[in-house]
Design a protein around this nucleic acid. Structure first.
Length: 561
RNA sequence: UACCCCGUGGUGUAAUCGGUAGCACAGCAGUUUUUGGUACUGUUGGUUCCUGGUUCGAGUCCAGGCGGGGUAACCA
């Protein structure tokens, strides 16, 4: 059993580096940051990054900022800014400073002028296409722009006029003057600014030139005094450029360190592909419980503590790998087992009639423990009567020896209730069992026989007269294949599982009728369920199956076949 | 085929200054059990990609292979 507060591994290549920088005195206090672009919702991969950067700051007594990397108004929106903050907080983290890259536009502009003055940046009049063509390829060097050697004064003048809006979109860019033959394509005079006459959600119409990622990101880190700038592996070849800008500017130089992004079986972590699932309505939205977004996992019922425990456990590395879904499920079950109260609900009902029950009106109230893992959770009263619902799969007309549930002549315990012995059953013309007849032993109330006899099986049940029918949604992975990301182009869409969501009516014990959004329960012997805050109405809760219970009977069965 | 990164059981990740492979999940077997859940116990899996070299000793260092991933947006 894992404890969410388990101290993280004592060392890994990032923590080793942080410790070394602290020991050498290179930095006094660790400062990290989580820098999302507010152009979409956060997903499980971000959860890993968030857990990492906030944890490192905390472990070493440092600080961690949340910074919106809002340098491209074309795709960004306030809606995402709000959602990101909400998601980070839901995970249980609180930032020291909330910043926006757009707040640094004036400083960035001044620094760009400084680079121009030092002959390290120039205004290029080429089209995007020409720039792409002249960049060369991975094997062939690029060609210098005809505007590469413009005099400093002309560059300065042009750049200022770019800012004042004199030139149309795409007509000019500011580029760093590095080396068009550099083996690292990122150093072949990368674009720093482009002209985009767009309204920005924070700066309004103040700017019509916007900085590119490489130019904005490292400088923002520097301004905030970030000591360790953690990012994913695909930014490895950007590090030389990150370093170049800081060195040429002579400003505080944070250390960029890359780690492998998180991949989990059956999950996609490409914003583009997730957007497509939403737009084509393969899912109900970004918060669909089948989505790997933080909001989706939240509505699935995954507790934030479990998600964070998972993120801590997976550790960090420089190799991209894929984690088994079973590992995530382990952490989810682990937390839920300790915290979720138990209830009884029948998802696929079949009638059970107790033939020797005193009278149709007779009801016995039984005491049921709320959580065997937590006595403090107390008990509740559950009504028992002569007509019940039990799970269809808990009865077999001709059961094998290893089946411990109900069958003709067999005795089982009805959880918290009585021992019942099956005396017979009815079937319809198609052979479906329609009713199971039993007798009960009044001496076994509560579930124990005074004569000490044992039963091998215990099954759950719900009194028909008291049952509350509610909607339960059963989810399975969105994709049929464990690695949908491996599909080329549009192929991932064809991998969608047709029945990844199934709605059923759950017949529940009365107390479940009053469940409210956000509550989590274990439906005994079935699985963990989350009361969805979005679709539930007072008196009409909607439950989402977060994860099933482990089922060792299913394994025995599979072997028998 | 240019450059960069990486290569430990099924999966993921550990192993101080080089000392002889650990942990979690999954799997298997069993004990306990008023959830075939939980808990507990035991256990199967690794020639640490390969080949050489240095060394008393290498997963750890060196060389050469092989394999995997990444990179050519006025996106981040």
């Amino acid at each position: 059993m894992s404890d969410p507060n388990t101290p993280p591994p004592a060392s890994d290549f990032i923590r080793d580096r942080v410790r070394a920088d602290l020991d050498s005195g290179k930095v006094q206090q660790v400062v990290t940051r989580f820098p999302p672009e507010p152009n979409g919702y956060l997903h499980i991969g971000h959860a890993k990054a968030i857990t990492l950067v906030f944890s490192i700051a905390k472990e070493f007594g440092g600080r961690c900022n949340l910074r919106m990397d809002d340098t491209n108004p074309e795709k960004e929106a306030q809606e995402y800014v709000d959602a990101i903050q909400d998601d980070v907080r839901w995970l249980g983290f609180e930032w020291d400073g909330l910043y926006y890259a757009s707040d640094y536009f004036p400083q960035l502009f001044a620094w760009a002028e400084q680079l121009i003055e030092n002959g390290l940046a120039y205004v290029d009049d080429q089209t995007a296409e020409q720039i792409a063509d002249s960049r060369g390829t991975v094997r062939a060097p690029g060609k210098d722009s005809p505007f590469r050697d413009r005099p400093v004064a002309e560059n300065l003048d042009l750049f200022r006029r770019m800012k004042s809006g004199e030139f149309p979109d795409g007509s000019k860019v500011l580029r760093a003057r590095i080396d068009m033959a550099h083996p690292n394509l990122n150093l072949r005079d990368p674009v720093m600014y482009r002209v985009r006459k767009l309204h920005h959600q924070r700066t309004g119409d103040e700017w019509c030139i916007y900085p590119m990622y490489d130019w904005a990101h490292g400088q923002s880190d520097s301004i905030e005094g970030i000591t360790h700038s953690l990012c994913t592996l695909e930014f490895e070849h950007h590090r030389p450029l990150y370093d170049w800008f800081c060195e040429k500017l002579g400003i505080w130089h944070p250390q960029q360190i890359e780690f492998a992004r998180l991949n989990v079986e059956y999950m996609l972590t490409s914003k583009r592909k997730l957007l497509r699932l939403v737009e084509e309505q393969h899912v109900d939205g970004w918060d669909d419980p089948r989505m790997p977004t933080i909001r989706g996992l939240r509505r699935l019922g995954v507790p934030p503590e479990a998600l964070v425990a998972f993120c801590r456990h997976v550790g960090i590395a420089k190799v991209n790998g894929t984690h088994e879904l079973a590992l995530l499920e382990h952490f989810v079950r682990d937390w839920l087992n300790q915290h979720a109260e138990r209830r009884m609900a029948v998802l696929d009902p079949v009638e059970l009639v107790i033939e020797n029950w005193p009278s149709p009106e007779h009801v016995e109230w039984l005491e049921a423990g709320n959580n065997p893992e937590d006595p403090a959770a107390g008990t509740r009263q559950v009504p028992f009567s002569g007509k019940l619902w039990i799970e269809r799969e808990d009865f077999m007309a001709d059961p094998p020896k290893k089946f411990f549930r109900l069958g003709p002549g067999r005795e089982v315990r009805l959880r918290f209730g009585f021992f019942v012995t099956c005396t017979g059953f009815d079937q319809d013309d198609a052979g479906n069992v329609t009713c199971i007849r039993c007798t009960y032993d009044p001496e076994t109330k509560g579930g124990n026989a005074p004569d000490g006899r044992k039963v091998k099986g215990t099954i759950h049940w719900v009194s028909q007269a008291h049952a509350v029918a509610v909607e339960a949604r059963l989810f399975e992975p969105l994709f049929r294949e464990p690695d949908p990301a491996s599909a080329d182009g549009d192929a991932f869409v064809a991998m969608l599982r047709p029945d990844s969501r199934r709605g059923v009516t759950a017949h529940c014990e009365p107390s479940l009728g009053e469940a409210t959004g956000g509550q989590r329960f274990q439906f005994e012997r079935v699985g963990y369920f989350y009361c969805d805050a979005k679709d539930s109405k007072p008196g009409a809760p909607v439950f989402h199956r977060t994860v099933g219970l482990k089922d060792s009977w299913k394994k025995v069965q599979a072997k028998g076949d």
